[in-house]
């Protein structure tokens, strides 16, 4: 019996609370609305939504992945560059000139180039980030990407061409 009484009492209480709230609900005031809107839009601009910026670690990891992909693409290009001059006459070299690096040396050189480029990019990103506190992240990322795209193939090709011309194999 006490259970049903409690349920009835609760229902009565809730109904009473709602009824009184409805009775005391103020009407919509156009004057108050105008006043509030005037205060809200008076020289106040909403702040832009927070963009979820990636962490520095994520940025560096992302560029490392890009560097690896570009390195993978650069390997066939390097082989292609070597293949363009198979019959080119080697330059006269002295006996003291070092021997032409073999393919494993080429790969090591390219890896070192990629690693250096990644380090340079990391430094570039760090400097941009520290200066603008992530504000110019998009610009920095674009600049870094452009630098990477412009730089890697040229460096690799020039390095390989240099090794071809300066360090030909001894016959």
């Amino acid at each position: 019996m006490s259970e049903s009484f409690s349920t009835d009492g609760k229902r009565l209480l809730i109904e009473r609370l709602r009824q009184e709230a409805r009775a005391s609900r103020p009407d919509f005031s156009a004057a108050l609305h105008a006043r509030v809107c005037g205060a809200v839009f008076a020289d106040k601009q909403p702040m832009l939504p927070v963009r979820h910026a990636a962490s520095a670690g994520q940025i560096v990891a992302w560029f490392a992945v890009v560097a690896v992909i570009l390195a993978a693409l650069a390997v066939p290009a390097a082989l292609w560059i070597k293949g363009q001059e198979p019959n080119q006459a080697p330059l006269a070299i002295g006996k003291t000139q070092p021997a032409e690096p073999d393919s494993s040396d080429d790969l090591a050189s390219m890896t070192a180039q990629v690693a250096n480029a990644a380090d340079d990019l990391g430094e570039l990103i760090s400097s941009e980030v520290s200066e603008a506190q992530w504000a110019g992240l998009d610009h920095a990322a674009q600049a870094a990407m452009q630098s990477l795209a412009d730089r890697l193939p040229i460096d690799l090709s020039s390095a390989l061409a240099f090794s071809e011309t300066q360090y030909p194999s001894e016959e």
């Binding site: 205060a39 839009f41 909403p46």
Partner: peptide, 16 residues
């Protein structure tokens, strides 16, 4: 009404 106005102003400026 004053608190309401301050509330909505704050909400607008902190919409982000």
């Amino acid at each position: 009404e004053d608190v309401l106005q301050e509330t909505l102003v704050r909400a607008y400026t902190q919409l982000n």
